[in-house]
Design a protein around this nucleic acid. Sequence first.
DNA 1: TAGCAGCATGGAT
DNA 2: AATCCATGCTGCT
Length: 939
Amino acid sequence: MSSSTKICFNPDCKDVKSERFRKGWRLRTGDSAELCERCASAYEEGRFCDIFHTDAAGWRSCESCGKRVHCGCIVSVHAFVLLDAGGVDCMGCARKNIMMASNQMWSSSFVLPLPERLKDLSVKNWNSSAGTSAVAGQWHQRHNIWNTTAAQSELHSRIPFEVKSEKLISGEHSSSSSLEKKKLEDPSERVISSSLNLAALDRLGNGNAGIESITAFHTFHREEGYLDGLQGMTFEAHPNSCANVSLQSSTSKDDPCTPHFGLTLPYSPNEANGPNRVSGTQSQRQPLPPPPPMVKQFYANLHNGVESSTETQIRNGRPRGDARARNQLHSRYWPRITDQELQQISGDSNSVITPLFEKMLSASDAGRIGRLVLPKKCAEAYFPTISSPEGLPLRVQDAKGKEWVFQFRFWPNNNSRMYVLEGVTPCIQSMQLQAGDIVTFSRIDPEGKLVMGFRKASSVPPSDQDNQTHKVGNGVSKNAEVNTRKSKPSEVVSTPRPLKGSAESTSFSSINQVNSADPASAWAKVDKSGYIAKEMHGSKSSILPSKRKSSTLGSKSKRLRIENEDLIELKLTWEEAQGLLRPPRNHVPSVVVIEGHEFEEYEEAPILGRPTIFTTNNVGEKIQWAQCEDCSKWRKLPVDALLPPRWTCSDNSWDPKRSSCSSAEELTMEQLEDMLSSSNTDASKKVKATKKDRDSLETSDGLDPLANLANLAILEESETLPPSTQQTTTRHPRHRPGCTCIVCIQPPSGKGPKHKDTCTCNVCLTVRRRFRTLMERREKRQSEKEAETARKKQQQFQEKLENEDDQLLMNSSNTNNSAPNPRMVNESADDDGNGKKMSSSPFKGGIDLNIQPEREDEPSPVSDSGGMTRCMSHGQPQMLASSDGHIELVVNQIEHRGGGAGGENLQNGVSYASGDHLDANMDHHPVTTLLPVSTSATG
DNA sequence: TAGCAGCATGGAT
DNA sequence: AATCCATGCTGCT
């Protein structure tokens, strides 16, 4: 084919005298390696590696046929596929396997005419079998998309790339130089190359190996190069980008079907222009996280050979900062387009649809502002680079094929950028979108059209949804065939998804959770349909849309709500759940011992059973008690009885006498109390509570303030208890079996029957006792204080009298005047006036039953909360004590001694003021007084 | 004053 | 802690 003056491209070839050269693998320049006849033959016959690379590393055995396969050079890069479980298959075996598995592994949209299918499926299968994912469609339409815009120059700042694999498997660390050696690549085998891409990414994703190697496999797709093909490269090489790019025509007449896999990670502007721009050093590359299983399909960007004539791969060894960009694309922006949607987009053309991203419209987006906020990473990854805030006009086609021109721009924000599409209101309105709906952005290759689809958030049936969702429009493009295409699903194969970071991979499974406990099955569904939404027909499971739907609508906590809705609120502790689990009926578990612990092993899943209580009778016999759901009576059951979740007396087949709700309960009240109290389960607590409710009917409706006080206290206490313990009553911790005190039977509201005055329940007794103690101590201290103060005053008085009669008189007057400290009076007035402090007390309605009367001289919450005992002069009750209502309530029922001249006004209040306060005040008073005052006393 | 453009803010990630 | 981004705010027309 060529002149004899050439030298065989194969460096290992010794035949320099060949007169005829033939084309071998494709070089990154787009040319083909010129091989001597011998090498070319070897290459064509698949013996190249056998001949020249026998000593090279990277040889492995096909998992299926055992044949040795070289996996370590550009020549062999297409000769095998990586398997999910590890290992490789030679291409022959891979294709065979593909044929068997393809239908299950790929969605219907991937159906190809047989000849094409064979090869394409091989790719698909490769994806599947290789268990890899991170392959995105090529990005080679930019040129088309943007060349009608005003900012074509900016295209050059972003260089998408494609991950290619070359030497990953071999373990040879293909350095940049190795790439730059412009090794030849056979375009006809790019299917396999793609697989390697996947593999490479997969490895990266797993963080296991190949991080270095993979960098050598990245192939940039530069739209100019792509679209202009062999016309040449015009993209700008970033200083650090190792943009020594070679063109590679993907045209292959040998292989009309040359699906291209590649990780398309166009440069973000920042990366391209900024300090973070990726360099050619592999070390800068970040390992790609393991993509979720479904991702692989989304990344599968299959091109058939028709388009490849216009495609040029640009390859260099530059590490992918872009990869990071796409990596970090949040899963919420991953396109989730169904196959039907893809077909609709694609029509019957040979186009490859590359869903780029989607976004749920926020209130702002859907509002009249007309600004659609673009996720930064998406904007930078998929939209043209813009360097000025003004941005550039962007042509997008909507669902009806109508063309819109949005202004793609940004504004600086926190040292970053906020990208928006302006002028979207008409489009959004035409699509009747609103907040919560999802707009999708896709690209059609090779036309490079940008299409904007949508998915209504409303829960339309999937079929309907498919019909109306993701209708496409096209942006301005060279080819206007989008709308006239006939369905050709096989060619609508690309469902690339952004590569996900590891963290996002995790969240991915969460976000895309299917109504299946088995993630694998969920993924399987995804794999089959391509998109969950499609697979989850009818089931509420179009989880994504529904989730999104419910999550938006203008709330800032949208994301949070999304997540929350993903959660099933399970108000069960693990132990509770365990306690409810019952082995399936008629099933004897086998016991396995794991690390010394015995586990019952059931073949069937356990069931949720009705909680029961086990007791032991006098003879040590274990008895199981279950409560009828209807009458709440407890029935004795065999200890091994397993109850369904709902169980009533009529189900009591063990005791026909008590198989009716009308039958008397076997347990006495005391027995029941003992049983319940001995049971620690929350269920039993609830049961106890219900029992208490029943008992409460017998309680007196008398009103015992003390009990009420205690009740309030318990209320306070109960607020800190687990819900299960306060659902029906506010039983206090001191509750004992048999106690029917108001506290235990009182509903949380505090309403209901009160204690009798004669109630001798523990709580009431405690309250009485404590209060009595408290008051006794207070009186005692008060007396002491009074005595002391009086003594001092008297002493002073006497001294003054003796010294200066006039002075004495004056002093005496001052003392009286100063007694009602103006500040205090004011405070009293305030408290009294608005009464707010009363309700604002953190101890409203509560009293600590644990209060230590012995420590009353320490500021008690009550006394500190709002007031203290105030002394008054001239017998005026102007000072306020604590305004806590419960105090007042209590005091009203107890005789308190008022002191001082105003004692008659103090009958309804009690002061918990500390002694210190009293001291302070009393210093000014010739007669000290403890003033049990409530706020009401000031009125 | 309404609408818009740009920026700022702060919750969410 | 940094970043993203939904939305509020402000100034301008």
